[in-house]
Design a binder for these strands. Sequence first.
RNA 1: GGAGUCAGCUGGGCAAUUGCUGUUUGUUUUCUUUGUAAGCCGUUUUAUGGCUAUCGAGGUGGCAGAUGGAGGAAAGUCCGGGCUCCGCAGAGCAGGGUGCCAGGUAACGCCUGGGAAAUGUGAAUUUACGGCUAGUGCAGCAGAAAAUAUACCGCCUAACAUUACAAUUUUUCGGAAUUGGUUGGGUAAGGGUGAAAAGGUGCGGUAAGAGCGCACCGCGCAUCUGGUAACAGUUUGUGGCAGUGUAAACCCCACUCGGAGCAAGGCCAAAUAGGAAUCCUUUUUUGCUGCUCGCAAUGGAUUCGGGUAGGCCGCUAGACACCUGUGGUGACGCAGGUUGCAGAUGAAUAAUUGUCCUCGACAGAACCCGGCUUAUAGGCUGACUCACUUC
RNA 2: GCCCCGGUGGCACAGCUGGAUAGCGCGGCCCCCUCCUAAGGGGCAGGUCAGUGGUUCGAAUCCACUCCGGGGCA
Length: 126
Amino acid sequence: MADTAFSRSCRLLTASDYKNVFDKSQLKVSNRYFLVLATTNSSPTPRIGLVIAKKNVGKAVHRNRIKRLIRQSFRTQKSVLDKLDLVVLARKDADKLENQAIASLLTQLWQDLAKKLARISSSVNQ
RNA sequence: GGAGUCAGCUGGGCAAUUGCUGUUUGUUUUCUUUGUAAGCCGUUUUAUGGCUAUCGAGGUGGCAGAUGGAGGAAAGUCCGGGCUCCGCAGAGCAGGGUGCCAGGUAACGCCUGGGAAAUGUGAAUUUACGGCUAGUGCAGCAGAAAAUAUACCGCCUAACAUUACAAUUUUUCGGAAUUGGUUGGGUAAGGGUGAAAAGGUGCGGUAAGAGCGCACCGCGCAUCUGGUAACAGUUUGUGGCAGUGUAAACCCCACUCGGAGCAAGGCCAAAUAGGAAUCCUUUUUUGCUGCUCGCAAUGGAUUCGGGUAGGCCGCUAGACACCUGUGGUGACGCAGGUUGCAGAUGAAUAAUUGUCCUCGACAGAACCCGGCUUAUAGGCUGACUCACUUC
RNA sequence: GCCCCGGUGGCACAGCUGGAUAGCGCGGCCCCCUCCUAAGGGGCAGGUCAGUGGUUCGAAUCCACUCCGGGGCA
């Protein structure tokens, strides 16, 4: 886990990038507070995009905090998620959680996602 | 020391590790370019053209170092300005805003100083504080009457009726007087009400009363004094005193406001389309808030169908902040100096751990400033007031 | 980021400009009609008028601030 950088190549940058993930989402994992959509990509790194709606998280401070925590979690554990484009959506009351709770929830999601990916790729190989 | 008022400041600190972003330096990758000088090719030679490599310049990406990186409210978007476009930012009407006076300011609905009123023992605080004696409108219920003053009861008086009846007084026991009735006149002192009832108190006056007269108080008008003014006054005179409230009712007066907003606006690149149907027409339609003028553009409107939502500039150093001096009661102005200065764009300023303390509130820039309003844990400083205690 | 609208019974709305009764429809409950139900008829309940403060004698209405909800703008 040497590479923990988080440069622009690790993010979804344009509306078309986002549209691609929403339209062709192959994987979908969620819990009460977050929903993750994912699809395989052609770039050498995994990429992430965030959708934190004002409707679900009212205060700008909390939106920023959640985004930071997601990015933090993603960049430290992105080696698990090779060759995937992700979109993370926050659900209602996500701002009520503590930082550590959010971090552990996200770790769980990444691992679920990696398992599903492995299952799909193995079935494709068969 | 207690209770309180006002003004100002602050808005967790330190360390380690891992990250994001602006600027800058170095290095490297690749691209472009003209210049320098050299070589090769083409040409009989010159002029010139092409290719290769070096140095220089510029751009892009990576790496390393240095350095900067949310707020007092960044919020609400309630006002004001800069900036950009609408040809100029124009004229009139309509409409909006402000509203004691003076000053400050780029400007303001903000601020400062002053006046008035209200609240508080006080320090102080609060005030949409021009005009309903320019006009119009509105004021339920209750009450006699609700803005024209009126006249229901009452009070007074005159006339009529009558001792039939009732009450009271008196009596020489025959009766007599007064009041109660009706009509006319005078009056507004008193009258359950109501948010509000047409100056107040006292004396005189009167048939009863009344600013009817007088004194004091209040009020209006004029004048004088002080003040730039609002306004103030135990200046002087005058008016018997007229008109309750509501202008966050229409309105009047004074001042003021053109519209849209950085998703403004400009540039580059790519893609698609240069359509179809219906209707209206030659001065129509659109834009400049509404209307008229004026100006500009141009066939226009509606429906259907199709396409784009990438990059760069605008973009942060400015009516900036701080310090000193100086003018001013002050807001603030002037002069000099200093170091400081976020600029993202699917959107940075953080996470984890350790440690300390008083255990950390409200809360996140998106073109930029000046205000207002709202949210806010705690801590610090200064000035002042009140009551008590001690010296 | 900027610019606009709206908030009234359980639901969808009127009343607000122009101040003094809070109303209509659907829904709910009760009664009548019917063998029973539906339809129909009659009656009843149900409202901090988003909140706070102000103006006024009096505010759903006028004014200010706040809180929610919705829409538009390259």
